[in-house]
């Protein structure tokens, strides 16, 4: 039996695997982008029907960037965490244990698939949205904060996905729960709606979510909308959330891996 000795070799193998899969399942990849775009449009065109004509352009821009953040979160959750089901069904998790490779590193490699789908989806949605909102959609108040908001979202959603993967190996989270949570996050998690526009009860919930702070920074970058707690405070809160989420992810992975090595695994999507 050949054991993988070097960590670098492990990372290279995982990277190779995910790139090969991306190439092998190219139709599925394109299909994912198409499906994503269409689902977003169905709901957004519906939501835009609520908006009065005089606010239409501003709301279309807020909605578009909310969608971009949601694409990042949704793809991380489904293409990383949701994929656990497939990895388990094909016996790949146990296989990695046997070769002394943490299966979470292998599953986390799906980040590559997630980011590829996200990067391909955004221009398509942008093109379609520009036909609705015109060139106004391309206007950016501060590219630095726009980029920062997106990077923050990417970090939060990847860490959240890893927590989900780890938890699912231990507890079995039904796949529908992920959908429910993702949908709720768009409205209640401050991704699609500025905190200031939210009803008060929902506002407290939204402010407790890390995504909200990434979204508030991004909205400042796009439209110059002042974040709910002010820009400087939002930056501090966003940084604290990174540390907290990273610590939680590390602890959860440690505990779950110890448990799983002894008792075996369960997964997201098991119905």
């Amino acid at each position: 039996m050949v054991y993988m000795k070097s960590r670098l070799m492990v990372y290279k193998a995982i990277l190779w695997l995910h790139i090969t899969r991306l190439e092998r399942y190219k139709y599925g990849f394109l299909n994912m982008i198409l499906i994503d775009v269409m689902w977003y449009l169905i709901f957004l065109l519906g939501a835009l029907m609520f908006v009065p004509s005089n606010e239409y352009l501003t709301i279309a821009v807020i909605t578009f960037w909310g969608i971009v953040l949601w694409v990042i979160m949704n793809n991380s959750v489904w293409l990383i965490a949701g994929w656990t089901w497939f990895a388990l069904a094909s016996g790949l998790v146990e296989e990695h244990f046997l070769y002394n490779v943490n299966p979470l590193i292998f599953i986390a490699g799906r980040f590559l698939t997630g980011i590829s789908v996200t990067l391909a989806t955004i221009p398509v949605v942008l093109t379609i949205f520009s036909s609705i909102a015109g060139s106004y959609i391309f206007y950016v108040y501060s590219p630095v904060y726009l980029g920062l908001g997106m990077i923050l979202m990417l970090i939060y959603s990847t860490l959240y996905s890893l927590i989900l993967v780890a938890l699912s190996l231990r507890t079995s989270v039904p796949g529908v729960m992920l959908d429910v949570f993702n949908i709720f996050m768009y409205v209640g998690g401050g991704i699609g709606v500025p905190v200031a526009r939210m009803p008060e009860a929902l506002r407290y919930f939204a402010l407790a979510m890390p995504y909200t702070h990434a979204a508030e920074i991004l909205r400042y970058g796009v439209l110059g909308l002042k974040p709910y707690y002010g820009l400087e405070n939002e930056l501090i809160i966003a940084s604290i959330y990174i540390i907290v989420l990273a610590t939680i992810t590390y602890i959860v992975i440690k505990i779950v891996m110890k448990y799983v090595r002894r008792h075996g695994v369960r997964a997201i999507g098991i119905m």
Partner: peptide, 24 residues
Amino acid sequence: YLIAFFLFGLGTMLGSIEEYSVRM
């Protein structure tokens, strides 16, 4: 209910149900 809540919640935070009624 979840889908209706999503659309209704998002829509009313961004606009109003009366506007939806008129447009539809």
